[in-house]
Amino acid sequence: MTGSNKLTKRDYTKTTLRAYFLQNGFNYSNYQGLGYALVLYPALKKLYGDNPERLAKELNDNCEFYNTNPNFLPFITSIHLAMADSGMEYEEIRGIKMALMGPLAGIGDSLSQFCIAPLFSTIFASLAMDGIAIAPLLFLLFENITLLTIKLITGAYGRKLGTSMIDKLSEKMGVISDAASMIGVTVIAGLAATFVKMKVAITFAAGEAVEGVTQSTVNLQAMLDKVAPALLPVLYTVLMYYLIKKKGMTTYKLVLITVVLGIALSFFGILA
């Protein structure tokens, strides 16, 4: 596998810095999907710019659901670019891209939001409390230098790993991509069970009301949870899957259906 090798170190750095744009198109149907394609745009343009058909296809493929931590994204995009630059198709890259999404979101979120941010937040909020006027600016400075450093380091490391990995493992790519897809599918199914939220609000009285005794009520959601937790979210996801895969429905329609359904079910007190 020779590939084009069109990308220079500068392209990788540029893509790394474009991680700031990851959420510019954030929405509830593909989360950071549009942003991911936007981050890669200049690099993809350099790779496939002479073929608009191919560029459009690559951008479209990259628009699928994505959700990770922006500070660790450069690690993923660098590996992605190294693979693409060596001539690999998106289908071969996708497995790794999707497998890295969940773990890096987990590590990145816990590090940046629950470790670095609270640390600086407490330090500089107490300085501000003491009336030190530049405390807010120092907060911004320290926070952003730290996060930029993480971006640059993970981006450079991803590039190194991506290029060496391809040289050594190109013939094994099929099985690696399969293995990566397995992790990806596991994580995404797990995320679907936790991210999608549907709770039944219906409770009804059990048995006859006896004077002086608190009437016991049956909570439908608690019953469902005993059958299987996150049952409704998973069933709804499966329904959406069915409508997309078998009925070829567009996201527009599905979003509209879901919003109307959500408002209606909430209005009649079925879901809360």
Binding site: Y28, I188, A192, T237, T251, G262
Partner: peptide, 12 residues
């Protein structure tokens, strides 16, 4: 709360 189901279904 229900909308993310579409995203996950798309990717699946």
């Amino acid at each position: 709360g229900m909308l993310p189901a579409i995203g996950f279904a798309m990717i699946m």
